[in-house]
Simulated assay, not measured.
Amino acid sequence: IVYKWIRDAIVNSYFKPGEWITQEDITERLHVSRTPVRDAFKRLQSENLLIIKPHQGAMIVHLSLEKLLEIYEIRTLLEGAAARHAGENITDKNIKELEKINLKMDSCRADAQQFMNCNRNFHHTLYSFSGREYLINSIFSLWDLIEPYRLMYFKHEGKTDEAMQEHTQIIDALKHHEPEKVQQAVIEHLNDVITTLAKDGKTLLGINEPQKRRTRRSA
């Protein structure tokens, strides 16, 4: 429970990139002992979501723009492959399920957090049709690293509209049962984000260097 609470708080941007937290903070907030918190911190560090600093606390991982772009480049390879496999297996029932999620996304455009959650559901559902469990797990371990930045991205004008248009293209390719076009649609979907980030990502996402922790507190 402790691990899941902290992890969800990081992925859903309750704790921001570069923010410091301590075991004391979490034990007081959740009314638990230090042991499950310490174990959760270690596990989250192994997942690259936290950086533990002895006598200081733990910092939510802060990604540079270069690291963020690297993750997106890896995503194009993995998600393109998952999309192609999904296109090979897709059924009419599967397509209707994706269309239903897309309609819900359309109704959530005014709420960036809800839109992002629906967007994740769309992609997870799409890739689940690939039947490639390890591939899917690899993809969403990367998603977890960048969720706070994706939320900031979707808060900017026009980004939800772009995502909706690109999802429509993905669904159209699925309907025509053309796996390679499904793959290409997903890759182009991600490449559009890469192009935007490479051009003005630091301004768009407000990426700055994380603050240094001065107070000596235990992790």
Rank of each mutant, 00 (worst) to 15 (best):
I1P: 12
I1E: 09
Y3L: 11
R7P: 02
R7G: 03
A9W: 04
S13I: 00
W20K: 09
W20A: 09
I26D: 04
I26T: 08
H31R: 13
R38L: 02
D39G: 05
L44C: 11
S46E: 15
L50S: 09
L50E: 06
P54E: 05
Q56S: 10
A58S: 14
I60R: 00
S64I: 05
L68D: 03
L68G: 01
E70I: 07
Y72A: 03
Y72L: 10
E73T: 01
E79H: 03
A81V: 05
A83E: 00
H85Q: 10
A86Y: 04
G87R: 04
G87M: 08
N89L: 06
T91R: 08
K93E: 14
K93N: 07
L98F: 10
K100W: 10
K100L: 13
I101C: 12
N102G: 11
N102D: 09
D106W: 07
D106S: 12
R109N: 03
A110C: 05
D111P: 11
A112P: 11
A112T: 10
F115H: 01
F115V: 02
M116L: 09
M116D: 08
N117Y: 01
N121H: 11
F122Q: 02
H123V: 06
H124T: 13
T125E: 05
L126F: 01
Y127C: 04
S128K: 14
Y134D: 15
Y134K: 12
I136L: 14
I136A: 01
N137R: 14
F140K: 10
S141L: 11
L142I: 13
W143A: 06
L145S: 12
R150I: 14
R150L: 15
M152W: 09
F154S: 00
T160C: 15
D161I: 04
E162Y: 04
M164P: 00
Q165G: 09
T168C: 11
Q169M: 10
Q169K: 14
Q169I: 08
I171W: 02
I171V: 13
L174N: 07
L174C: 11
K175M: 04
H176D: 15
H177C: 03
V182K: 05
Q183S: 13
A185Q: 02
V186P: 13
V186S: 07
H189A: 07
L190E: 00
T195S: 10
T196D: 15
D200R: 11
G201F: 07
G201V: 07
K202T: 13
G206L: 05
N208F: 06
E209Q: 15
P210T: 08
K212C: 02
R213I: 05
R216I: 12
R217I: 10
R217H: 07
S218N: 14
A219S: 11
